[in-house]
Measured scan of single mutants.
Amino acid sequence: MIVFVRFNSSHGFPVEVDSDTSIFQLKEVVAKRQGVPADQLRVIFAGKELRNDWTVQNCDLDQQSIVHIVQRPWRKGQEMNATGGDDPRNAAGGCEREPQSLTRVDLSSSVLPGDSVGLAVILHTDSRKDSPPAGSPAGRSIYNSFYVYCKGPCQRVQPGKLRVQCSTCRQATLTLTQGPSCWDDVLIPNRMSGECQSPHCPGTSAEFFFKCGAHPTSDKETSVALHLIATNSRNITCITCTDVRSPVLVFQCNSRHVICLDCFHLYCVTRLNDRQFVHDPQLGYSLPCVAGCPNSLIKELHHFRILGEEQYNRYQQYGAEECVLQMGGVLCPRPGCGAGLLPEPDQRKVTCEGGNGLGCGFAFCRECKEAYHEGECSAVFEASGTTTQAYRVDERAAEQARWEAASKETIKKTTKPCPRCHVPVEKNGGCMHMKCPQPQCRLEWCWNCGCEWNRVCMGDHWFDV
């Protein structure tokens, strides 16, 4: 396979590697080409510095992935760790964990309700045991953590790749202090920090972006993250068709209702045909949960890209028209025109101005929308079919299609509260000796007794199943 190397943020060049090629071997190839010592090179990928003893497969490097290699003399205490030698983080029983690669970060837990604080980093599902597709590297999971809308060759929703760059020099040479644990960490600028490894760059702020994971991409090709779309790892039924499908869209209502993408497309087109989208002054033209839940309008309007190009163009047109109407304007009634106009409040005669090729020149009556006339309008008909009709959803289907309910059931079956801080902690095999993952707590306690870890627990039921 081919990976592209950008040395000291210059133009990239291809390097041929195998899945079992080590990072140090990659350094040696680059060092020979650039005429520099291999031990002064640092390989940066997806916000993480890659260790010498890791392989291309370990690092989730795919065909035509772009890695950054910078030349920086080692500072005291760094060289041993980078070589894969006596790194205290690798000691058996050590409590410190390697910062998780962005290629394996899962933010789907952050669609849980606000009262489930902490689960994004504490609760991990076991539903990723799908067998890898044919042709994928051994052991590589097909679980997708992110979804994007690819405006490039795909023109559809695709699995996405999370990447990070330095907000100062805009190069992907920043190593994160810690990985993101929720969508806010990724979507809110300057929320996460790190250290830029580019020479002479003092940058410390992280800037995240997404790429389409279905095809090789260049540095400049980015895609918009659709953070309401998630892999259906909890096997929730769709609120409309009641099938279990994946991926799904999880509405931001209190129940976190789930809808499959085909039904979401149908829901949007139906509402669009009836012009029953909601115009929100802050958000724009949007839709609420299909069950009509309060405070559930979709905030990231790129989710409506699921409509496809033709329907999305209609959505944008109707949204612009609705904006004009909300501002007190009118639409030209001549067939084939429909231009938005903003006449004076007491102006009865409205002319669709033909300047700049935008208007048709038609003069019409503001009251009856017919060709302009003197005197009273002959008839004014009330528009028919403008009443909002509820999208029919079966109550039982709505009850079963809740992301929140599956989460709470998982928590109930696989977790116990920490005796000190009461945060839910998952036990997935292993011994009875637990350690609270909350940095402010870190209590060592017994899963069996529910009390602080002691010699009695150690001698009596340390390794009970």
Rank of each mutant, 00 (worst) to 15 (best):
P137C: 12
V380H: 10
T231S: 10
I69M: 08
W54E: 11
P99F: 10
I23V: 08
K427C: 06
V250D: 00
T387I: 13
L272C: 02
Q178W: 05
T177R: 10
A383Q: 11
G429V: 08
Q276T: 10
H257R: 00
A206G: 08
R6P: 05
L272K: 00
K435H: 15
C263G: 00
R442C: 09
A172P: 14
R420C: 11
E221A: 06
P88S: 10
Y285K: 00
P137T: 13
G361W: 08
N273R: 03
K32W: 10
C59D: 01
Q57L: 07
S109I: 02
G336M: 10
F264A: 02
S233C: 08
V250R: 09
M1I: 07
G152A: 13
W445M: 05
K299H: 07
W403M: 06
E404M: 11
A398R: 13
A291P: 01
L266F: 11
Y312N: 04
A379E: 09
M80A: 13
T175D: 11
E444M: 06
M432W: 04
T83V: 14
V148C: 05
G354T: 12
K349R: 13
E96Y: 15
K27F: 00
F7Q: 02
I239E: 00
P159A: 08
L50I: 02
K161C: 11
R140G: 12
D126A: 09
C365H: 02
I122H: 15
L342G: 04
Q100Y: 09
G340Y: 05
S9E: 05
C212T: 02
P343M: 08
C431H: 08
S65Y: 03
F4K: 13
R89H: 12
W54I: 06
G35M: 06
Y391I: 07
E98P: 11
V350F: 04
L272S: 01
R72V: 13
K76S: 14
H303G: 01
A398I: 13
D274Q: 04
H422I: 07
G340E: 04
P281S: 10
I298L: 07
I229P: 00
N313I: 09
P202D: 14
A120H: 12
R455H: 15
G85V: 11
P417N: 15
E395A: 11
D243I: 08
A230D: 01
V425I: 13
R334M: 14
P88C: 09
D18K: 10
S131C: 11
S286P: 02
F13P: 00
Q25F: 04
A320N: 13
S246P: 01
C196K: 01
V15M: 06
E399N: 13
H227T: 15
D280C: 09
E404N: 12
D53W: 04
H124I: 04
P202C: 08
E374W: 05
F364S: 04
D130N: 10
E79G: 12
E195H: 12
N144V: 04
G94K: 11
G152P: 01
C260T: 01
C268W: 02
A320K: 11
D53Q: 07
R245W: 03
V423R: 14
L443K: 06
F251W: 07
Y267W: 05
V393L: 10
R51G: 05
G329N: 03
